[in-house]
């Protein structure tokens, strides 16, 4: 029986690594992967809290997060494909079209 705080700490660690990866990496695709890691860290936190409080709501929310993440991945990748078709590049330091 592993205490839930251990899982929660692991979740926080993963989230931090995800943030780090997002800022360290410079290609859109890997940054997108980092976002997925953060989402998963959130899931892990939900589940460990569900365990800690003995309630199933956390598990239900995880399912919703996974669904939303799947939808987000599909649309996000589609956007990335479009960006790549137009720029032949995925480097975020080269994509400056949002400049005001």
């Amino acid at each position: 029986m592993i205490p839930p705080p251990a899982f929660l700490f692991l979740a926080v660690l993963l989230f931090g690594l995800g943030v780090l990866a997002f800022f360290v990496k410079k290609d859109l695709l890997t940054q997108f992967m980092a976002v997925e890691i953060m989402l998963n860290a959130g899931n892990l936190a939900f589940l460990s809290l569900a365990k800690a409080f003995g309630r199933a709501e956390g598990q239900a929310l995880v399912l919703f997060v996974i669904t939303v993440a799947a939808a987000e991945a599909v649309v996000g990748l589609a956007i990335i494909v479009v960006v790549f078709r137009q720029r032949r590049s995925l480097r975020t330091d080269e994509l400056k079209d949002l400049k005001g």
């Binding site: 839930p4 003995g54 598990q59």
Partner: peptide, 15 residues
């Protein structure tokens, strides 16, 4: 995380 766990009661499985 610590704050969140403060009120937890170790009951069994979440169902």
């Amino acid at each position: 995380a610590r704050k969140a766990l403060a009120g937890s009661v170790p009951t069994g499985a979440p169902g």
